[in-house]
Design a protein around this nucleic acid. Structure first.
Lengths: 345, 345
DNA sequence: CTGAAAGCGCTTACAG
DNA sequence: CTGAAAGCGCTTACAG
């Protein structure tokens, strides 16, 4: 790089003091319009850009947000959860709109990342995205809390701090899936996905699903639930176990699309057809859902809105402003995997 | 946040000077081991972290790389090219391994981003990822060059600066596709994808494809080429045009997987079957390729290696070290869309 | 409306 | 091996 111009160079050329240059560049109203224009003109000419490090150091603010993606240690290193990947786009855009830079990093739940962003002043706050065991997660969250780090996370609730998390109305999503499957005339249901305290989101989906079925008079005992983390492999395995156990089943609701894809493979491996023999509904609406075979019906989470909200709420936390909302309403997307489209209404 | 400790606090507690603290923290060998240990211990106790802004300002180095993703203005805002998305993972990891932070941003080709990273000292260099018209792109590249910005980009060549780009051996990839299709006994070929100066990568793929076919005695005139940018829609449209024009065709090589998926839809829309009536081969091996219907045979680009290389080479550029390599060898992944697996050997 | 001055928290010659 | 001092390039009270 050529030697960079500083605000002193501009000051010299404009015949004003460096403080005035600094003010003019930030369009301070206290500075004379003519002076301001002259400074801007010279800055443009010199290709001058404010040094962010100096500016941040002085302001004690970085205008940068950090996005931390957790990889589930149980899956192999290859793929990032596609649901989070699709959120990345909207988070970046939301940051850009608000003049924030975005630092992105992948972390293992086990790493010692909690102090590496805000404490180093690299970022003013952190966005946490990641499935993984919630109970492990919680420990980290507590540390962040203790350090008074500004953060916001997707999905998991932070005990006593509802404002720190943004999430889908997972229970309602599960209900939607149950109601739709019921409406299509299915009788024998199953749920595949973890449904315990370690996976609060999946658990809510399970609960919503069973809410709907129970409302229709189906007993909880009649709804087998098989554990699976959010991967195809886990979904396939759970399905084989379910099928081989001889449960009568004609409709499966899966805690995520990745699981659902594995479930459909499992069903097909046993010589059965989707949706003719067993209907399948997923959750997330990741890009591959529409390419699955058959195309997967699923509960869609609006990732654009989610990303916006994550950034927005984090900024509000940083600026000590009240949070307006932190829940997103899911909707059902009907494709082929759940059977005939129901009659209207 | 609580008041953060500074190196002066540590100095005071350790009974040494602040300069010694600074040196000790960076494990300078000039500092006595005992002193070093004591300083480290106190730092840990105070939860001390070096202020990046101060450190960067002083060092005139940010240890940060910026990743700029270009959205093709012709596609709608929804999806980021999945090929780049899959590269993101390996880029992040490669950065982490080398102690670099990664700033991520999406840009329109039209935006004025070229000075916003290195000039502001937010990043030491830039990684450019994006399809789009190469001729528009070139103009930006020239500006970066003029400013002596450190950057590296995927795919497009930077005139006179072979080291600034990292790419697949696209021509070889095209050849692989042609040879495989030939080996399967196909006779009537077509290429779908832009093949002009505006899309140098696609053009190389086309050239490699025709190289193979010409080697087998097929005349270039017998290989219809229909333009398409890298989207399903464009692929589908081009296919309908191709088919409706009455060209005899039993094998189509597509410039990208996204195009190939659209091509298969187009073929099916005209009542033909893949691969029975027409074989299809894509390029990239994006995640959905294996979920396509039928699963797409394609030329795979090793995104992990690509990401590594991008980061590695950029760092070498920044440090004035010579670049070792900037080309990646593609390989063919055979699935269902191209017909019967050939006999071994 | 403008300027002189302090200071953000480090790193690194320089001197010993 | 250690310390005193300068300085990275800004922003922002403070004074006028």
């Amino acid at each position: 790089m050529k030697d960079k111009a500083t605000s002193f160079d501009i000051a010299y050329l404009a015949g004003v003091s460096q403080s005035t240059v600094s003010r003019a560049l930030r369009d301070s109203p206290q500075v004379n319009k003519e002076t301001r224009d002259k400074v801007h003109a010279i800055a443009r000419q010199l290709n001058y850009k404010v040094d962010k490090n100096a500016s941040n150091l002085r302001k004690q603010r970085s205008s940068t947000l950090a996005l931390l993606l957790f990889e589930d240690p149980t899956t192999d290193e290859s793929l990032i959860n596609p649901f989070f990947l699709s959120m990345l786009g909207s988070i970046t855009r939301a940051c850009a709109q608000r003049g924030q830079d975005l630092l992105v990093s992948f972390q293992q739940l086990s790493d010692d990342w909690h102090a590496d962003y805000e404490d180093t002043k690299k970022a003013d706050g952190i966005i946490l995205l990641g499935y993984g065991d919630y109970e492990d997660y919680e420990e980290k969250l507590d540390k962040l809390l203790a350090q008074e780090t500004h953060f916001v996370c997707w999905g998991a609730e932070v005990e006593g701090h509802p404002d720190f998390s943004i999430r889908s109305n997972n229970r309602q999503g599960g209900r939607l899936a149950g109601e739709h499957l019921l409406q299509l005339g299915h009788k024998h249901f199953a749920f595949i996905g973890n449904a315990s305290a370690g996976s609060p989101e999946f658990n809510q989906r399970f609960l919503g699903f069973t809410d709907a079925l129970q409302d229709a008079g189906i007993h909880l005992k009649q709804i087998p639930q098989y554990n699976a983390i959010s991967t195809e492999q886990a979904g396939q395995l759970a399905t084989l176990n379910l099928l081989d156990a001889g449960h009568p089943v004609d409709a499966i609701f899966c805690a995520s699309d990745l699981i659902a894809i594995g479930v459909m493979q499992g069903i097909q491996l046993r010589g059965l057809k989707v949706p003719e023999d067993i209907a399948v509904v997923g959750f997330d609406d990741i890009p591959v859902a529409s390419y699955a075979n058959p195309p997967l019906s699923t509960i869609q989470q609006d990732t654009t809105l989610a990303g916006e909200m994550l950034v927005q709420n984090l900024l509000q936390l940083i600026n000590n402003q009240p949070i307006e909302t932190n829940q997103i309403e899911p909707k059902i997307v009907i494709r082929k995997s759940c059977g005939t489209t129901p009659s209207k209404g």
